[in-house]
Nucleic acid binder design. Structure first.
Lengths: 212, 212
DNA sequence: TGGTGTGAAATACTTCACAGCC
DNA sequence: GGCTGTGAAGTATTTCACACCA
């Protein structure tokens, strides 16, 4: 059966990323066949959940046998559209921005940071991680014709909305937001928030309370 | 009514962090009174959802009036148990680890990184962000008596489980995992995963597909 | 009057259980 | 025989709608 047309739960997408992680490790260990049950063990997700998640995108397994690991990896990558490179623009050349620029897994997974922006005149014109820093206000101009689809915000919270606006103006299609501030975008520009404190708070809460 | 004894949804905890962000910004702008409706506008969460989330922990509002911003902030902090300092140990003194050590918001929110670990002999003994790097294998010994409750993992994926084990051995109560590998812990040691790629994949997917 | 707190309804997501196929 | 794919059942979460109260 070909991919379905149902709405795919957000949680499913998150789990596919987890499966991918695990499957890539398995492939590295020369495990070439996996069942939903063994994958379930390895990544702590219910086996029927795994099967259901996968069938949103197609039928990748063989009944009575299981899934071919290499083939499943390709299928998931195709399903998520991560089987091709994505160009990114990063706004905010601080500590965190530089850490992302230096993060080798980024490039390995074909997310290429092709432009960096900041508002600090001290930083503009200098090179960070091999990319020259431009002024955030000139974003649309600098990105013109560069086919950059993703924006990454690593600025302080109070600048986040401003650079998000520049990104939208520059035609960016989606935003990864590390700033701890909610940003508003048109409905066709999705935002993903990466919030450290969110997670720290959840830990503090679950450690302290009886309810788990 | 006092706090309830129901199980509190995970999603509620995440949203409380968002409300806090927004409320703190409001307080900074001298907005001292807020309704669930205006908070809803500001942080893009349904107003009844906000009211329901808050009443898990108590009744903080006044009917016909709204919520006192300052008081609500305190109440949320108390509910999450983030109204007091937390000591953290960081494992992995690479780019990302150093970025976190240099992140001033960490200290502002009372998450204090009091110990840093790595396995690289080059790094051990050196100081990073004002903290001396110790050998990961000596974690239990170094942390003894230091009252460190949280562990932060910023190592490469293949080392993540090993340092997680050291953390558990050292009596850590919860783990923030930045490594893109699933880690196993006993049921009383919660793990929060911060996965960049997870979010990037979700963006790639939602940009590429019609379903949104 | 106006906005909270909250059961009840609607929706979304997860798990079960088994038919179907290799 | 064994493991996938999937409707149906079960559970969790969100939203509605309104009683209640300053």
């Amino acid at each position: 059966m070909p991919p379905k047309n149902e709405r795919i739960p957000r949680a499913t997408i998150r789990r596919l990323a987890v499966y991918l992680q695990t499957l890539e490790r398995m492939l590295g260990n020369d495990e070439n066949l996996v069942s939903s049950e063994s994958l379930s063990q390895a990544c702590a997700v219910n086996a029927s959940q795994i099967r259901k998640d996968l069938t949103y995108f197609g039928e990748f397994g063989v009944r009575g046998v299981g899934y071919d690991v290499g083939r499943l990896i390709s299928s998931i990558k195709q399903s998520l559209h991560i089987d091709r490179p994505w160009n990114c623009a990063l706004a905010g050349a601080g500590n965190l921005g530089r850490a992302l620029l230096g993060h080798r897994e980024f490039r390995q997974r074909h997310y290429n940071i092709v432009a960096v922006f900041d508002t600090d005149p001290e930083k503009i014109g200098k090179s960070v991680g091999g990319v020259e820093v431009s002024c955030s206000r000139r974003m649309a101009e600098v990105l013109a014709g560069k086919n950059v689809q993703l924006g990454i915000i690593t600025t302080p919270p109070d600048t986040a909305q401003t650079v998000a606006n520049y990104m939208i103006e520059a035609g960016i299609r989606g935003i990864l937001n590390y700033a701890s501030a909610h940003i508003f975008t048109p409905p066709d520009v999705p935002v993903e928030n990466v919030d450290f404190f969110n997670h720290l708070y959840a830990l503090s809460f679950s450690i302290s309370s009886k309810n788990r």
